[in-house]
Each structure stands twice: as structure tokens, then as C-alpha cells.
């Protein structure tokens, strides 16, 4: 089982921080307006709340990152992830319909990419594997597609 790139932890931390700031904004605005707290107190409360949220989130993200494993052999792509709700997904190579490699702005900053594997299924037709280096993503894609060769469908 292989782990994701170390840089991906940074990305999800950045995203986590942004989300904490956003979530902390709501109560500070509501309370600030309701009790007409002075703006600097509201700002301080906002920062404190966000920091508190982020500290608790950070350890969760760490575990989430550590628990995220994948493995590709000739038969199937296996993914294992989740901290509280754990998932193991097996996508047999023979069922892969098409493969996308996406790379968002944050991903590009760290030279990462996301592999999206599509099957013909209904409920979990898409399986994505984020936090791969661009080279690794292309390599996985080629491996997945090479196994498809000779398949007439």
C-alpha cells in the first residue's frame, strides 16, 4: 500500500484553515450584531474560534492523510481511506471505462494531480485518488489503460 504525496497534507491543511475561518465567521457576525460587541472583540473571538477549530481539525487531517492508502496491481486499483467512517474500494482494472487526470490551482502549486477512475457502475461510478505527483498520476493512468488493451468493448 502506498501513501499520498506529503505535499497533499499541506493542501488539505490550507483548505481546512480556510474552512475554519469561514465557519468561525458565522457565529462572530451573529453575536457581534446581536450584542453589538466592539469590532476588535468580535475579530479576536473570530480568530480564537478559528484557531480552536483548526487545532482540532489538524490532528484529524493528519490521521486522514496517514490512513489514505492506495495500491495498483495487475488486477485492481485498491484504495483504503477514512478515519471514523472507513472505506475500502476495489476497482477491477477490467472494469475501468475511462481515466481522468485533474489538477487544480492548489494542486499545480505543489505539482500534484488527481486521478479519477470511471466505471460503468451506478452508485459509485467514480473513484478519485487525489494527492499524486503528476508523474505518478500519468503512470497510474497508463498502467490502468494498458491493461485495457485487447479489450474490444
Amino acid at each position: 500500500m502506498q501513501s499520498l504525496e506529503r505535499d497533499y497534507l499541506r493542501i488539505i491543511r490550507w483548505i481546512g484553515l480556510a474552512m475554519c475561518l469561514l465557519i468561525a465567521l458565522a457565529p462572530s457576525i451573529v453575536f457581534g450584531v446581536l450584542w453589538s460587541v466592539a469590532w476588535y472583540w468580535a475579530l479576536l473571538a473570530w480568530m480564537l474560534l478559528a484557531a480552536l477549530l483548526y487545532v482540532s481539525l489538524k490532528s484529524y487531517l493528519k490521521h486522514w492523510y496517514l490512513n489514505y492508502k492506495y495500491h495498483l496491481n495487475t488486477d485492481c486499483l485498491a484504495i483504503r481511506r477514512g478515519v471514523f467512517w472507513r472505506h475500502q474500494i476495489a476497482v477491477p482494472v477490467s472494469r475501468v471505462q475511462h481515466v481522468d487526470v485533474n489538477s487544480g490551482p492548489l494542486d499545480r502549486r505543489y505539482g500534484l494531480a488527481k486521478l479519477v477512475v470511471n466505471t460503468a457502475g451506478t452508485h459509485y461510478a467514480q473513484t478519485s485518488l487525489p494527492g499524486l505527483s503528476v508523474d505518478k498520476a500519468y503512470q497510474l493512468r497508463d498502467q490502468l489503460l494498458a491493461a485495457q488493451e485487447g479489450d474490444t468493448v
Partner: peptide, 14 residues
């Protein structure tokens, strides 16, 4: 006819 297989475990399952 199986396309993919998923194993889940919730905290309650665990």
C-alpha cells in the same frame, strides 16, 4: 456484472 466493490465500516460497525 460487478463494476466495483466497496467495503465500509462506520464507528458503530467497528
Amino acid at each position: 456484472k460487478i463494476q466495483n466493490i466497496k467495503w465500509h465500516q462506520t464507528p458503530f460497525d467497528r
